[in-house]
Amino acid sequence: MRANRSRFITIATILLVIAGLAGALTAVLRSAQGASGSGGGRVDGRAGGVDLERVVADYTSRFGPGHGYRQPRKADRAGVAEAVGLLLDGHRDQAQQRLSQLDFTLRTLVDRVSGRSFAEIADRSDDAVAPRGWGRVYVDLGHRARWSVQVPHPVADQGTERLGVGVLRGSPGGVLVIAGAHRKAGRGDSADVAHRQDTVFDAVCDELARRGLPGIQVHGFADDSAPGYDVIASTGKGTTGRADGRRLADALRQKGYDVCRAWARSCPLEGTENVQGRRADSEGLAFLHVEFAHAVRDDEARTARAVTAVNTITARWAAAG
């Protein structure tokens, strides 16, 4: 009898150990699935946060002329824009489903610099041998979307991607739209998203304009393209944003930058042919086309001062409405 009881206890102990191991294995498998899945509900960097600037820099470091861009179909452009709209309306699951159909991912990043959570919409082909180059979108999840900052020529306009992240961090309610390839990556000017209406970048910016979001688009110019100036500030084709343009020019001037004000004099690189600016004008929205000299973009401290000046405008936009 005692031997049977001992045998029973031994078997029970073994079963408990097996159950414990099975539970641990299940937890490991679930963790692995979350790390390698589509990212729909994943939060990256919750504990220590991630550096959003580094995330974007790693992404754009692969860009170069002559490769990395495929022309999107109309359905692709419309689909990504629709998904962005769903996300902004609070329909994350539907946005995730739509993006997955287009081979895009949706995840949440916690930026340790700003302390904010951002949704990242990214092309799954980014890490492929032949990426499509359709770009990324970052949305502030803690506030209603109020404004956008657009980076149409990352890498080609060196440092504008860093400017874009800095502006996004500086005021609540921002949406950052980044082109997914070097402006000379495609055939002809097919990847030059600031002058094309058949890109994912333009489709997303159109969706934001349709929702009434004012925007600032950051560019870069060679120092000898506008001698004597650090910044060229313009409202593109439209005039709605002139009051904001003046405020921005004044804020940049206070930071020590010489600004060419395109509404007051003839400046190079005024952006009057910019298609996102033209759409904003048709919607009666403020749109600022801002060119920064290489000397501003190439110096971290000067970039930070420029971002602070820009945030005087985005803060106003964030507080409006």
Results as ranks from 00 to 15, higher is better:
H143P: 03
A181L: 08
T235V: 07
Y138H: 09
A226Q: 12
I18M: 13
V17S: 14
G238M: 08
W317H: 05
A280C: 08
T26Q: 14
V43N: 12
D299M: 11
V84C: 03
T235M: 04
G135Y: 07
N311E: 12
Y229K: 11
F118V: 06
N311S: 09
V310I: 02
A309Y: 02
L52Q: 03
A81K: 01
A78E: 15
L86I: 04
H143V: 07
A226L: 12
G20P: 03
R92L: 07
R124C: 03
R112V: 07
S36T: 15
E291P: 01
A81H: 03
A251H: 09
A75Q: 15
S266Y: 10
A226E: 08
T314S: 06
E291Y: 06
A315V: 00
L109I: 06
V129A: 15
A179Q: 11
D93L: 09
S38D: 13
D298R: 10
G284V: 07
S114D: 02
Q150K: 00
T312L: 00
A209T: 11
D258I: 14
D103K: 07
V200G: 03
L208P: 05
M1F: 09
Q197A: 10
A264D: 15
A319W: 00
G115T: 07
T235K: 00
S125N: 01
R42T: 14
D93E: 15
W147Y: 05
R297D: 03
P72I: 10
A22I: 14
A249Q: 05
L99G: 04
Q71D: 14
S125P: 07
T105K: 02
D126S: 14
G20E: 05
D157K: 08
G212F: 13
G34P: 00
V259S: 04
G23C: 06
G166K: 03
Q197I: 14
